[in-house]
Amino acid sequence: MEEIKRLHRAGAWAVLPDRYTALRKLLGAILAANPDAPDDQKALLVGSINQFRVMENAVERALADKTAPDVVGLNKIVSQKLDKLNEVLLTFRLKP
């Protein structure tokens, strides 16, 4: 996710859709591997997957329209998700 933020700042839009896809798959795998996680943690993962899907579509549309996506807005969302996901992933790692 930090790399995605760097790619946003660098304006590397062409490579970003693949990164979003990879991240969504990773989050999906984490969700599938933790079926007993509390509902709020599952909702965070589902919401994050959806956010990156929306982000991917927005960047694809911007590429097609030859417009510049809003870097600050995108990175704000990534940062918010990063902070919350870090907390949740830590609890998964700490599980016995």
Binding site: D39, K42, V46, G47, N50, V54, N57, D70, I77
Partner: peptide, 20 residues
């Protein structure tokens, strides 16, 4: 509810699904 990367689109997530 939370804002998304697209202005004017808001989402809420649940354990299995989400709504926009």
């Amino acid at each position: 509810w939370e804002a998304t990367a697209v202005e004017g689109v808001y989402q809420a997530a649940f354990p299995q699904y989400s709504v926009k």
